[in-house]
Design a protein around this nucleic acid. Structure first.
Lengths: 223, 223
DNA sequence: GGGTGTGAAGTTGTTCACAGCT
DNA sequence: AGCTGTGAACAACTTCACACCC
């Protein structure tokens, strides 16, 4: 809802969630000098089915050539544009515990169009300390320009997550990646994605328990 | 498919993915001395709709009381049992870079039934070094008992992920949480979940770009 | 031949709305 | 009266299969 204004073309959420994966594969191919790829090869490398891949790409338009495949460069650009990644996004990480520091140093961001530009923590003992090339600031030191897009990453302890989110939103952040297990209560207009590590493990635990091979591989006694 | 043996009751994947969230909320309620909760309150705290919550819980059986709500303790136990979390799971983290170290120290695991028991890295310069109470070992030092369930967490650089996964599986691991962006090629019998941080950011970028308020909200003079 | 693009069918997940129990 | 449990309607997503084009 709230979808009042024009929503360009309507790309399903499930598709949007896979576009970054395709993009990564395409860039790897491009780096290896490949310039045409079939839906089968691409799907394989991305871990999806080829029919699904073709359907996903069809939402962007027709960028493939029948009997041949997709132009790697062209498709790459198209997805980049669709995801809005032509210009770099700035990232602000809140919470400089272990996880926050690890994220601050994470190499994968820069290579995919994200620049970590602020490290925020309200603990006065931490402000001023450098992590990599950046100094930790408190929220007063976080003043993004009104026209720049900043993605906020919450890596605080659970009880501080809501306050961190509110502070980010108050300063114009409209997209948040939340590592705290606490669900955030925010305006509809703010996009939130959650990564809860313990939840992921629990989901795996469920499947593990369900596919346990034998009931109890005890004993081997004859008798 | 491959669904040869009995699959107890059939709980939808989407429901399984939410059970851990409910469980966390229930435990928090329990800690605050609450002993009955309605689907509305629980749904609210978990960030879902009440009808959906009730449907989810209905897959576990009928543990609510009409006109009253759910017994917090009872439901907690039921979900715990269903997820297979009665006994602790052991976790092995592979790749002791920034992310691996952060995960090794992550407090959220222990409180949710997971014990990090192995820290693995094949770099000889790292083996023997302690991170918290555990020493880093190489794969030769990873010898879980045949009957214990271990969840493997891959926090290596992308190019090492497949080899790490293969090594885990060769030692009996059947559940893997993969932080590397590389998709893993593994037998069907191994459950894999992927957490790709850059992908999450890119999905947010898409939404951000799409909901940008005005073309250019300039002016207003600060100084 | 080879591989894309896409309606149609099938599957899975969500929401509604109300019967039924306490 | 209040709140759960659930069939039934609905919506989203996936897979199939084949027409169509190079």
């Amino acid at each position: 809802m709230t979808n009042t204004s024009a929503s360009r073309r309507d790309i399903p959420d499930a598709t949007v969630a896979r576009l970054p994966v395709y993009l990564r594969v395409l860039r790897a191919l491009s780096g290896r000098g490949v310039d045409v790829v079939s839906s089968n090869e691409l799907a394989d490398a991305a871990g999806v089915r080829s029919a699904g891949l073709r359907k996903d790409l069809s939402y962007l338009g027709s960028y493939g050539v029948r009997g041949v495949g997709y132009d790697v460069e062209r498709l790459s650009e198209e997805i980049t544009r669709e995801l809005g990644l032509q210009s770099d996004f700035a990232v602000a990480i809140v919470g400089m515990g272990n996880l926050g520091r690890a994220l601050a140093d994470y190499r994968g961001f820069a290579t995919r169009g994200f620049e970590v530009r602020w490290l925020i923590d309200n603990d006065p003992a931490l402000t001023g300390i450098h992590v990599g090339a950046l100094a930790i600031v408190d929220f007063d030191g976080f003043r993004p320009a009104a026209d720049e897009s900043v993605i906020g990453v919450i890596a605080t302890p659970p009880h501080a997550a809501q306050a961190a989110a509110d502070a980010l939103v108050a300063r114009g952040v409209r997209s948040i990646l939340n590592f705290a297990s606490e669900p955030l209560d925010l305006p509809e207009s703010v996009a939130v994605r959650k990564v809860d590590l313990a939840t992921e493990l629990q989901i795996l635990a469920f499947h593990d328990q369900r596919t346990r091979p034998e009931p109890a591989p005890l004993v081997e006694v004859p008798s």
